[in-house]
């Protein structure tokens, strides 16, 4: 469903991605690990179409279409979801308004009518509960004054509502307490099915005990330098990244 081929990308004219290739098929879970600053978040931003992140070479195909040609909102409506490493605060716009606007936009794109208020409310309350956030979070400004962990749960809540085809979770496990980690994992696992794929960016092998990946990749210097199965994560946990970087040179 997602083919990234030899992707080069720069931010403010600085080259960050240097020939990244990745193939994700429906139903798969890919974990991406790698040192700080290696380009993991950049990959997510380029895929989401963030202004200022420019693909300079290579190609990205998503569900048979050229992803890089699409507007950000169109990518989302086609089923791409990015859970931000640093979710944005939007004071004055309630979580509820935000969720409804997002869901309606996506439903409209699929030719479905907007959910009526009652069904939407029920759905919103259910997912809010599923990620263990109090109902009051629906009324609060989007991420406004949320703790780090609450922001991450809010991202998962959005994912559960929008039911994307491909979800990229950028360090959604960072800063979470043990219970919250379970919540995130349950959220992902509940959505796992043969049609849906996940890219899970993480620094910690621990998350992968709960969300068991089909593949583990190591990103360094803006490209994938090693891929393996879940045992690679264990090996990294033990040995760090040094040996790989040496190997890659």
């Amino acid at each position: 469903m997602l083919s990234i081929r030899n992707l080069h990308a720069s931010v403010d004219d600085k080259a960050i991605l240097n020939g990244l290739s990745l193939e994700v098929r429906p139903g798969e879970v890919h974990a991406i690990m790698g040192p700080n600053g290696s380009g993991k978040s950049t990959t997510g931003h380029v895929l989401s179409g963030r202004p200022g992140y420019e693909a300079t070479a290579g190609s990205v195909e998503f569900l048979g279409r050229d992803l890089l040609e699409m507007d950000t909102e169109e990518r989302a409506r086609e089923g791409l979801f990015l859970a931000f490493q640093y979710p944005v605060e939007i004071p004055g716009v309630s979580n509820m308004e935000f969720l409804k606007a997002a869901l309606d936009a996506q439903r409209e794109h699929r030719g479905e009518s907007p959910l009526d208020a009652v069904s939407f409310m029920k759905k919103a309350r259910d997912i809010c509960k599923a990620v263990n956030l109090d109902q009051s979070f629906l009324k609060r400004g989007v991420n406004e004054g949320f703790s780090g962990g609450e922001k991450k749960r809010n991202e998962i809540m959005q994912m559960m509502l929008l039911e994307p085809k491909l979800a990229i979770l950028d360090e959604t496990d960072s800063g979470l307490d043990i219970d919250a980690l379970q919540v995130v994992a349950q959220g992902v696992n509940a959505l796992r099915n043969p049609e849906r794929a996940f890219i899970v960016i993480t620094h910690y092998q621990r998350l992968l005990d709960y969300i068991v990946p089909d593949y583990v990749h190591v990103l360094a210097g803006g490209r994938i330098i090693k891929s393996g199965d879940k045992s690679l994560a264990l090996e990294l946990e033990e040995k760090g990244y040094g040996w790989l970087e040496d190997e890659a040179v």
Partner: peptide, 9 residues
């Protein structure tokens, strides 16, 4: 951008 990544125009 955050809005747009959720599909909002």
């Amino acid at each position: 951008h955050y809005f747009r990544t959720r599909g909002v125009s």
